[in-house]
Simulated scan of single mutants.
Amino acid sequence: MAFEVTDATFEQEVGLPQQPVVMEFYATWCGNCRRIAPVLDELAAEFTTRVQLVKVNADENPELVSRFAVTSTPTLFAMAGGRQVASTVGAQPTPILRALFESAADTTSSGIVSGCGCGPTCGSDSSKITKTGTDLISGWVPAEACTLPTADQPARLAEFDALFTSSLREVRHEQPGLLRLRLHGGTEVEATARDLTARETECCSFFGFTISRTDDEVLIDVQVPADKEIVLDGIAAQAETALAARI
Rank of each mutant, 00 (worst) to 15 (best):
G123K: 11
G117W: 11
E42L: 07
T88I: 03
C118F: 12
A58P: 00
F47H: 03
R98G: 06
A155E: 07
A69F: 01
P149M: 07
C118S: 10
P38G: 11
I96H: 04
V54H: 01
I137H: 07
A80H: 08
R98K: 14
A44E: 02
F160K: 06
G90T: 00
T88P: 08
P154N: 04
G133E: 12
L157C: 04
G123A: 13
E144H: 14
T130E: 11
F77A: 03
P142L: 13
A143F: 05
E63H: 01
S127T: 06
A155Y: 10
T130H: 09
P95S: 07
G117Y: 02
G119L: 07
S138Y: 12
E42T: 14
S103V: 10
G115H: 03
S138A: 08
P95W: 01
Q153M: 08
P142D: 09
D135H: 11
P154E: 05
E42P: 00
P74M: 06
V39R: 12
W140G: 12
F160D: 05
L76G: 06
S87N: 09
R67Y: 06
C146M: 15
T134F: 07
R98A: 05
E102F: 00
A80E: 10
P93S: 01
P95C: 12
Q153E: 06
V54D: 04
E60H: 07
S124V: 02
L40T: 01
W140S: 15
S138N: 14
T88Y: 02
W140P: 08
T150D: 15
R35P: 00
G81C: 04
G133F: 06
G133L: 10
E63G: 09
V113T: 15
T147E: 09
L100M: 15
D59M: 06
G111Y: 12
A162Y: 02
P120W: 02
P38L: 11
T88C: 05
A99D: 10
Q92C: 01
T132L: 11
V89I: 10
S126H: 14
G117P: 00
E42W: 03
V65M: 01
G115L: 15
E46S: 10
I96Q: 10
A104F: 05
S72L: 11
A151M: 09
A162H: 09
L157Q: 13
T88F: 04
F160G: 02
T49N: 15
R67D: 13
E63F: 02
E60P: 00
Q92L: 05
S66D: 13
E42V: 11
D135R: 12
Q92K: 08
V113G: 03
T134Q: 06
A91I: 00
T147Y: 07
Q52W: 00
P93K: 00
D106F: 04
F160N: 08
S114W: 15
S103N: 10
G115A: 10
L43W: 14
N61H: 08
V141E: 13
A145N: 06
A80P: 05
T49F: 12
